[in-house]
């Protein structure tokens, strides 16, 4: 089975972020999306620790300990950037000003519940950061994750077994096997990995899927969708 690579997944997410969008990229896999945003679009990145207009990592030796991202890695500012305090930063999410966030996940349910902050293991130290605020705050929530666990279990589930981050908050799921929309009718498969049949995807995923896809051959086809009126 051919899976989308991480770079292909990041590029696929990037194509679904329109010109002019304000976007927060979560820690881990979603961070890769920054390297794959279409060059012909002006997209403004938000980092929750107080920066809009975040630029790429600095050159070696040019790191500034006062200029970091949510993962506490050194970043830069782009022309037009702004700094603000934490309450303003989270007002941008909660107040519905941020257009998109891209988050990693342990599990997503068929109704768009998200679990991505805690495994619930009794000896694990819980840490939530800004995940819950992003999940309910951004106008659209994209999840980017492997489709299956290392044991081969689907991370798309009927009901999350891990502690929830947010209820019914996920709009679109990008995995290494498919792109799916969470809709009131159920999970709609928009795209599948090359040579992966809908039936095989359905078997691997377990929960009911609606086929709205075309099988992809070789490079994924760009599909234009209007995210915002």
């Amino acid at each position: 089975m051919k899976r989308f690579t991480r770079d292909q997944m990041a590029a696929r997410v990037g194509r679904d972020i329109p010109n002019g969008a304000y976007v927060n990229l979560g820690i881990g896999l979603p961070t890769m999306v920054a390297n794959h945003l279409p060059k012909d679009r002006e997209i403004i990145l938000h980092t929750e620790n107080g920066l809009l207009g975040m630029g790429p990592a600095p050159e070696a030796g040019a790191e500034d300990a006062d200029l970091i991202n949510a993962g506490k890695q050194p970043v830069t500012t782009l022309p037009g950037a702004s700094f603000f305090h934490h309450a303003d930063s989270f007002a941008m999410m909660r107040g519905g000003h941020l257009d998109f966030c891209v988050l990693g996940a342990f599990q997503v349910s068929v109704t768009g519940d998200l679990a991505n902050w805690h495994t619930g293991a009794p000896d694990a130290i819980p840490a939530v950061g800004g995940a819950m605020d992003l999940a309910i705050g951004a106008k659209r929530v994209y999840v980017m994750m492997e489709h299956l666990t290392k044991k081969g279990e689907s991370k798309i589930v009927a009901r999350c077994s891990y502690p929830l981050t947010g209820v019914g908050c996920v709009n679109r799921i990008f995995t290494d096997l498919a792109v799916l929309d969470v809709t009131s009718e159920g999970l709609k498969v928009l795209e599948r990995a090359p040579e992966l049949s809908f039936e095989e995807l359905q078997r691997l995923t377990g929960v009911p899927l609606i086929d709205a896809s075309a099988a992809l051959t070789a490079e994924p086809v760009v599909t234009q969708r209007r995210e915002h009126a």
């Binding site: 929750e48 309450a87 989270f90 909660r94 130290i125 840490a127 800004g130 819950m132 705050g137």
Partner: peptide, 21 residues
């Protein structure tokens, strides 16, 4: 934390900021 020598109140970051505000 693992020894039970500190109490933790875990708060989502935006709630932490807004509670302080």
């Amino acid at each position: 934390y693992k020894k039970g020598d500190i109490e933790l109140e875990l708060v989502p970051q935006g709630n932490l900021a807004e509670r302080i505000r």
